[in-house]
Each structure stands twice: as C-alpha cells, then as structure tokens.
Design a protein around this nucleic acid. Structure first.
Lengths: 210, 210
DNA sequence: CGCTAATCTAGAACAAGTTTCAGACTTGAT
DNA sequence: ATCAAGTCTGAAACTTGTTCTAGATTAGCG
C-alpha cells in the first residue's frame, strides 16, 4: 500500500520501517547539508530553508524526515558520533589506568571537535536544548557515548558504581564542552576538568592496574 | 542630561549606572512576570510579548532591559539563586564530611527546583543555550553557584584541586538537571549522580573530617 | 519654569522555525 | 497497465523572537 514505504529516520537504528534507496539518499543529503552549514556558522547557520535547498528537498519533506531543527542536529550528531567511534576504535588509548585511557579518549574526541568548532557548537547546543520530544534520540547519543567510554575503560561488565562514574563523566563532558563553546572556559580548563572527573573511575574500581 | 539615567540591568551587581526608582520597579515587574510565565509552561511559555504585557512595559523597553529572551531568563535565574542562597544559608547542611554537606545542599536545591519544574526548565534551558553574548551573565550565575558549594564545604581557601572538583560538581549538577528536566533521568538517578560526583571532594581534600 | 537628552510607548516590520495545502509523482499490488 | 495510498514539491501562512520608527514622557539642569 505505501509508496516509498514509511519514513522515520534513524542512523544505527533502522528500527521501524526500512527506507527506499532514494529516501536513504535524501536522508543522507539532508544530514550532509546540515553538517556543512553547521561547520560554517554553528547552530544559527543551520537554517531549515537553506538545509532544504542545499539538499534538494522541499521544506515539507525535510520536516517529514526530521520533525524539528533540534531533531535534525541531534541526528547529525549521531552521525558524527559513529565516525568518531570508528576512528577511536582504530587506535585504542595507551594509558595505564582506566582513568587515563578514558581521559585520553575524551581529549582525543575534544581535539576532533576543536577542528570544527562551529559544528560542535551546533550539535552540542541542540543536544542540551532538546526538550522531551527529542528524548529518544538524545538518549541514543548518550548510549553511544557511554559505549565509547566503556570501550576506553576496557571493561566487560561494569559495576553499578562504575556506571555511575561514567554517567558523571558524561555530564562533565557535555557541560565542559558548553562552557568551552561559549567562551567561558579555556581548552586547558576543559582538559583539567576531564582529568579531574576521570579520577572517579579509579575511585570506583579498586581492582584497577596501578 | 539623561532622563532616568542609564539602564543596564543587574541584580546583585548594580555595577554600571544606578537605576531610577521607576526603572527598578519596571525591572522587578519584568522579572516577576518572567518567573510567573516560566512557572506555568517553562521556556516556551515565556513569550516576550506576554512578558511585556504582564509587566506593563512596551516590547521595546523590555528589550532595552534584557537584550534577549535568554538574557531575561538568565537574569531570572540570578534572581532566584539569590533567594536560594539566602534560604540555604539559614540552615547549614548537617553532614560530617564536606562531600556529604555539598551533596545535601545540592539535593536541597534540587528539591526546591522540583517544586517549580517549569521554572527550572526555563532557567536551565536558557542557561545552557546561552551563546557568547550572554557569557558575563552566565558566568555570574556560575560564580554564585560556586559560592554556594564552597559555603557548604565550609572552606576558607580552597586548593586548586578542590576548585577543580567544584567545577566538575557544577558541570554534573547542570547536566544532571537537564537530563531530569527532559525526562531522561529519574530523581533518584540525579541523586546518585550528585552523590557520586561529590566523592571527588574527599578525594581532593585529604584533611577532611571523617 | 523651560530645555534637552534620554527613555518609554504603540505598533509596524522583519527573520527564521514550523505548519498547511493542493497538486504532481512513486510505489507496490492487482 | 492500472489503481490506491503514501510521498514529494512549491508556495503561502502562521508564530514568536527581534528590530525599527515616530511621537509622547520624564529626568535633571540652568
């Protein structure tokens, strides 16, 4: 009955209905345009009309794929996170302790973001500005981040305390990024904050190699 | 030469030019209207036209006092934070360790926010969405928060490590609030995160009473 | 008091996110 | 090949933050 089947965009989570090739292509064009515009001028430069035009899609269609600007930018972030995770996987961190490895990984990610500060601005602002209607997508980003951190820790089955520590690390990561993006903290400051919070890991993992 | 002298609103920081009585009254009406509307429907419910109308001020005047919606909401937060600090001061936390006292203080603040979740939503979203143009005001909020935490710790002159810990606690506090406000974390979860991050204090303060 | 500069007001105008709609186009099934 | 249902397009409309303007008010000063 449907034509190009249903929509509902997802990146790693092609849960609901599968997309037509042309739909997949559209989705990709949109995300590409979004990232491109964001790389220029950050959150404000991602204007829905421009995204639509750049990706050769009608405005209504754009809104069918991504029901709001925030949805679009969060999806863009998911997209970028995948790249990131792939990249990080290739060269695992060198640190001795779990805390060092996590800090190293986050700093590596941070340096990547520094290369595209405007893009980082757009994604992070969208992420923290997102309201309840975007919760599922934001949650997905959060889970992905958790995976990256656990990866760096090199744990099989983390304890509840360790999961709490990871949650706090994520909090710090997001908030520190924001203070950096809004010019209220220096890069060095962010580094210190990350290293400080990572100490929590050793605190919650008595069996860490020292 | 000027009439009602100059404007430039501030709360605890009447730095630049002092305000006329009528101006002070206007400013107060505006902040009151802002908090009232925010208490109803959160960030979205604070509509500049409505704030202007509620506070009996022309739209242009509103923008003269607060150059953007985010500025207005951040100022509203400063205002609320003062109350909060005053209230907290009266009954200092009971905990034995600094970590316990800080956690207790933050949880007390958290409970206050729970009583007006919409207001909390408006203020916190504004805070994290703020761009560079609002940095001074956001920074002021941050400083005020730092003071509250240091107060709870009961320290005279904190070490750099301790200040780092406080910074991380603030990061966690903000970010945890956001996850709670957007329905991605339960109240219990926030509590755990706060308690977890507060452990950093003991970690950085070897001389803590135990 | 009378002046002058600054402030305030009412309201129009503009910008960008979001919604809506009629009509053209695709798709999968018969 | 044809049809029904779902999609896409282009364009207009609507909402809310922000800016602008002309004229009325106000404050402080000589």
């Amino acid at each position: 009955m449907p034509a190009e089947s249903k929509v509902e965009a997802r990146s790693v989570r092609p849960s609901s209905p599968p997309l037509t090739e042309r739909q997949e292509a559209r989705r990709r064009r949109i995300l590409h345009a979004s990232a491109q515009l964001a790389s220029r001028g950050g959150f404000d430069a991602v204007q829905m009309r421009e995204v639509a035009e750049s990706s050769q899609v009608a405005l209504g269609t754009l809104y069918r794929y991504f029901p709001s600007k925030v949805h679009l930018l969060v999806a863009t972030m998911q997209d970028q996170l995948e790249h990131m995770h792939g990249t990080l996987r290739k060269k695992p961190p060198q640190g001795e302790t779990a805390a060092e490895r996590v800090a190293e990984t986050l700093m590596r990610a941070f340096r990547a973001l520094q290369r595209e500060p405007h893009l980082a601005d757009a994604m992070v602002r969208a992420l923290t500005f997102a309201d309840r209607s975007v919760s599922p997508e934001v949650d997905q980003v959060s889970r992905q981040t958790t995976v990256i951190i656990l990866d760096a820790m090199g744990l099989e089955d983390p304890s509840p305390e360790q999961l709490s520590a990871v949650r706090v690390i994520e909090h710090t990561w997001h908030s520190a990024l924001i203070t950096w993006l809004s010019g209220r903290a220096s890069i060095a400051q962010v580094k210190i904050d990350i290293e400080t919070v990572c100490r929590l890991i050793d605190l919650t993992d008595p069996g860490a190699s020292r």
